[in-house]
Write a protein that binds this DNA or RNA. Structure first.
Length: 496
RNA sequence: GGUCGCGUGGCCGAGUGGCUAGGCAAAGGUCUGCAAAACCUUGUACAGCGGUUCGAAUCCGCUCGCGACCUCCA
């Protein structure tokens, strides 16, 4: 099947036809987490979004090198303290213990959300020499200056010489330039507010430090992504992704560093995911408007009435386009939970459908095929998962109708039915990365066997019109949140 | 204050100059021993006010409201 993949490029603010640099190969870099605290649910949204993008690119035949970094040094807070150090101080741990602890936690959360691991997951601390080299290159090209052992990127000069600063984030360069030096914090060694550190001299109490030509210190936050993307994907590569809030200054500075060090263009397509909101507002720890993934899963929060499983949350995320804000509310999650169940049930129903040997394909056959084509078209259109899901849900009602006899299976060719089974399965599990949680909950077949026995016994009772026994079984199972579904061809069951 | 984006039916959420998005909820119907599930039907939705157009929810302007970024953030 031909694909005309289009994606929205934050740089041009337009959907563009996607043309990888090398046929059949895609290099994709996504800014990963800073591992100083438990992973935030908003982080999870971003990584789930890029997980689906990664999965779909692979699904349509690309070989993808997906690089997602771990930031374990150099990320400064307002007060100038390193995030890693702050975490270490609070928990009385070595910085590397902090990094390890939260890296493990992050990986566990990605596993829970069924996000595939990236091809390469480089750490900032593992690439100090590469970052030092990049600083040297920037200095050599005249876009940096040293001050008391620290090195700063000379944004003003970069703007004057290249004129390429501010394009991604829509900064007004004149305004940036016009900012006076008075705006500088008093202790700053920067010449201009728009300048940023690429190497920081470590203060005496700073534990994370490496030798460099300028001082014992550590790299600036933005530098790692420039250095590591260049190292693993080359000076120019296909896709760079991250959260919307990284556009400025992080990504803008990344571009400046790439160009400033080697006239490299860096990424050709920039993709940004939008924010996750909680009850209409940005999640924020300070005002209590926040919920952690574990709290969400078990329902341990004032913001939700109950727990929602990781796959329900993942499905919920896919119902919104990655470039739109996603508002997490209890009501919306309840709706998503039911929709998710309906989707999973439909897959089971579909896989149980048998083709009619004497089928004569008619309009229904054509409709199914056209809906399936639509599934690909929607994904090709900037990874429009909500629209893709809409198409899939249209298939769901066709599937249920075929099962229930409202639509004749005799009008669907064996080939079309086989394709439907394949496409449905592929999109739900392979592309969207959803999991059937019932099947994975240590179900070794015992439950299926027991349920079949109970269903058989109930069928006998119903045959004798013993409604008392029949309803007793039904009600007892219901109290266990197991639902019996009586159909034309017998009874099936599922979880509520 | 500056920059950018958004405002869609009870809720969530796509879309976009003329053609049913979809999910959840609600109502009626089919099926059923009764239900549930499933299926069918049902919504004069596009913040407000102007303008462009044969035609706008979709383009333009203004107003109101919300959000993001501008400082650490996915």
């Amino acid at each position: 099947m031909e694909h005309n993949l289009k994606l929205y490029n934050s740089v041009t603010r337009e959907k563009e036809a996607f043309k990888p640099m090398q046929d059949g190969h895609v290099g994709m870099y996504v800014c990963g987490p800073t591992v100083y605290y438990d992973v935030h649910l908003g982080n999870c949204r971003t990584f789930v979004s890029f997980d689906v993008i990664y999965r779909y690119l692979q699904y349509i035949g690309y070989r993808v090198r997906y690089v997602r970094n771990i930031t374990d040094v150099g990320h400064l807070l307002d007060d100038g303290e390193d995030r890693m150090l702050k975490g270490a101080r609070l928990e009385q741990l070595e910085p590397m213990e902090v990094a390890q602890k939260y890296t493990v936690g992050f990986h566990e959360m990605m596993r829970i959300f069924n996000a595939l691991p990236p091809s390469i997951e480089p750490r900032a601390t593992g690439h100090i020499p590469e970052q030092i080299e990049m600083v040297q290159d920037i200095l050599k090209n005249g876009y940096g200056y040293e001050a008391n052992g620290s090195v700063y990127f000379d944004t003003l000069k970069f703007i004057e010489k290249t004129g390429i600063y501010g394009g991604l984030s829509g900064r007004n360069v004149e305004e940036l330039v016009a900012e006076s030096r008075d705006n500088l914090k008093n202790q700053s060694e920067k010449r201009h507010p728009a300048d940023f550190a690429i190497w920081m001299k470590a203060s005496p109490e700073h534990i994370m430090r490496w030798r460099s030509p300028w001082s014992e210190g550590f790299p600036g936050w933005h530098l790692e992504c420039s250095a590591m993307s260049t190292k693993y994907l080359g000076p120019e590569f296909d896709i760079h992704g991250g959260g919307n809030d990284l556009k400025f200054p992080h990504h803008e500075n990344e571009i400046a560093q790439n160009y400033g060090s080697c006239q490299c263009k860096g990424a050709r397509y920039w993709m940004h995911t939008n924010m996750l909101l909680l009850n209409g507002k940005k999640m924020s720890k300070s005002d209590g408007n926040t919920i952690s993934p574990p709290e969400l899963f078990v329902g341990d929060s004032e913001h939700v009435s109950k727990g929602y499983s990781p796959m329900v949350v993942r499905f919920f995320m896919l119902q919104t386009h990655y470039r739109s804000t996603l508002d997490l509310t209890d009501e919306a999650l309840q709706a998503a939970e039911k929709g998710f169940r309906r989707l999973m049930d439909a897959d089971k129903t579909l896989q149980s459908l048998q083709p009619d040997a004497a089928a004569s394909p008619g309009p229904l056959d054509a409709e199914l095929n056209s809906l399936m084509d639509g599934v690909y078209e929607e994904m090709d259109d900037d990874f429009n998962t909500p629209k893709t899901l809409a198409r899939i849900f249209e298939l769901v009602s066709r599937i249920n109708s075929l099962k229930g006899g409202q639509l004749p299976i005799s009008e669907v060719s064996a080939d079309t039915l086989a394709r439907l089974k394949q496409v449905f399965h592929d999109f739900v599990y392979v592309v969207f990365g959803l999991l059937d949680e019932d099947a994975t909950e240590g179900n070794d077949g015992t439950l299926d066997g027991l349920m079949q026995l109970i269903i058989d016994i109930r069928a006998d009772a119903r045959g004798r019109k013993d409604w008392g026994t029949s309803d007793k079984i039904r009600d007892a199972l219901k109290s266990l949140r197991l639902q019996l579904k009586d159909g034309k061809e017998g009874t099936s069951w599922g979880r509520e």
